[in-house]
Design a protein around this nucleic acid. Structure first.
Lengths: 344, 344
DNA sequence: TTGTATGCGTTATCAT
DNA sequence: ATGATAACGCATACAA
């Protein structure tokens, strides 16, 4: 094969055999040279590397995967990427996975009809899979846990055969509720359902409900978005018995609620208090700044990637369930905070 | 092989041979049955499908890829996922790629040290690659264009061997500048990060500069983020000659600028006008609502995925350069808009 | 230190 | 309609 012909070879079409032939060695030697496994004599090494350069050889990923018996890739399934929350988790996940030498394959379920097939297809091309709660039907989760790659469920109820990773919800929700009581608020709305049993929002509702009892009522939104929160809050706050405080399922819903209050001429927190959850960046910049519960979003993703790595490499318990700490962030939207402190 | 043993097989470890053996047919028949290629008799088909069910067989992705000579996956390289912009583009990309039967592998370059190797590794496991401008060194782009999979550059200067897809910048930037002149503004700052030649922000600067000439001066930020815009705007607006209007490189920087103005006791747009770019969701909700230029972020991603599909399947020109339309969105942050219109 | 030969799990061609 | 069997591209145990 003459040089021009070789250089004109189709991209990615160069195989280890052509490199071996050009270098005058066997494919085993080429492989050893490139991977650093096994000994290679200096001059031989030179010849091989030169051939690799000249032919622009790059090993076929499919060939490597087949021979190695692994994909060097992790998957992640999330509902959408519209808000900061899932994006932040994904950032943490990708960063750690990448450091561990694993590519990240994503799957967004929002608006998809063939979720089951898409998830199965994803499962077969990764060494480990992270799945957000409520993105995948329960029976599919069981199927994956039983006959799929190592699985970690994020913000999902515990389930046999899979690891679980989530942030604390019930305790900080109760703490938030008590803080609102200390402000003197007496009637409440929990804005941001619908929720599936055991997911984050459900747990927040449980925590709030546990402290406030019948003084809090649930109000549904279509989604966890600014627009949904805005629309639902407009109805709620314009209605007959406006609550003293609106406890929102997350920050985006809360930002929508604040907008709605402003449009209705209501002062926040003077006429109505508003709280969020997550502590996304906009929470700090909102007016008034949003009282919220900070959860370590990136660490959620990073932890999932690390857990999967342990599972894949054989280290790590198969049924571990980890809960990350959260922190109540008190800002202006829940009520005035005079120097002397709140009334108790 | 008895049934219990088969069912207890390691997950994902079942091969087509085991299915064939259990069904009493050849692997060719199993493959035909599952892929629908070639004829299979009714009863045979039944036997095969039953065996597949019982063994929970799922074809090895690596095996399929190797045999088919394709990955059924697309890659995308972006700098980060912190703001709405790249996330929105990614949403469009993933949605279309998924519909076309291709998984999406992501790579974030933010804070990465071994970008070159990571990009090369990504390139070899996909059938097509989308790369954002300024995320990858120029010579690597050339290398990819020359000996990589089909490539589409998003918001990147045109380059031999690759398709290009971006939104219009220069014309709407000029239009925006003229609109600000109509408001009566006479001194301007262009607030944005250091820009690389030919990228979006550079083009916006060119467009603005073309109309405003020396009346506009560039002001650097560290990043395209709310915090960076906030910090830079604080310095700018507290300084000696405060401009009439701050033209920001994007909406996030603009939101930061508005925050800075508020903190300094300056009214927007009364004391200083502010404009953004992109029309992210927060732009509409900001106070004052942000005058900006809307660009079709999701369509940018969707278009990239479609272009790659055409390139991969042989349709589609190899050096196409497409520019998407943008729209000037006039809201409150650029100045008052009395019913009678602006002064000219 | 190097080469030979086998396996990895499919797909698809070519007989039958 | 079905079955052998040859790719596909690489890694690696085993020989030499």
């Amino acid at each position: 094969m003459d040089e021009r012909e070789a250089a004109a070879e189709a991209p990615g079409g160069v195989t280890i055999y052509e490199v071996a032939q050009r270098a005058g060695v066997s494919i085993a030697t080429v492989s050893r040279t490139l991977r650093g496994t096994g000994p290679v004599a200096g001059p031989t090494r030179e010849k091989v590397l030169r051939a690799v350069q000249e032919l622009r050889f790059t090993p076929s990923r499919a060939g490597v995967s087949l021979a190695e018996g692994r994909h060097a890739a992790n998957g992640i399934v999330f509902p959408n990427l519209s808000g900061p929350y899932f994006a932040e988790v994904l950032i943490g996940y990708e960063e750690v996975a990448s450091e561990l030498g694993r590519s990240v394959i994503i799957l967004s379920t929002k608006g998809r009809t063939a979720i089951r097939d898409l998830v199965r297809e994803l499962a077969r091309r990764v060494d480990g899979l992270a799945v957000f709660g409520s993105t995948v039907p329960a029976d599919l989760v069981d199927e994956l846990a039983a006959s799929g790659p190592p699985l970690v469920l994020i913000s999902h109820a515990e389930r046999a055969g899979a690891c679980t990773l989530r942030s604390e919800n019930i305790r900080p929700a109760a703490e938030l509720a008590r803080h609102l009581l200390d402000h003197g608020h007496r009637s409440f709305a929990f804005l941001g359902a619908p929720y599936a049993t055991g997911d984050d929002v459900d747990q927040r509702w449980q925590g709030v409900r546990g402290v406030l009892g019948d003084a809090v009522r649930p109000v549904l939104t279509d989604e966890y978005t600014v627009d949904s929160g805005h629309a639902a809050a407009l109805r709620l706050l314009a209605g007959p018995d406006r609550p003293d405080a609106v406890i929102c399922s997350d920050d985006e819903v809360a930002l929508g609620a604040i907008l709605a209050a402003e449009e209705l001429g209501l002062a926040v927190p003077g006429d109505v208090a508003v709280t969020g959850w997550d502590d996304i960046m906009a929470a700090r910049h909102a007016r008034p700044a949003l009282t919220t519960v900070r959860q370590p979003m990136r660490e959620l993703g990073a932890g999932a990637a690390r857990t999967l790595d342990a599972l894949i490499s054989g280290t790590g318990a198969a049924g571990a369930h980890r809960v990350l700490d959260t922190e109540l962030i008190v800002r202006g939207s829940c009520g005035p905070h005079p120097p002397g402190g709140l009334r108790k």
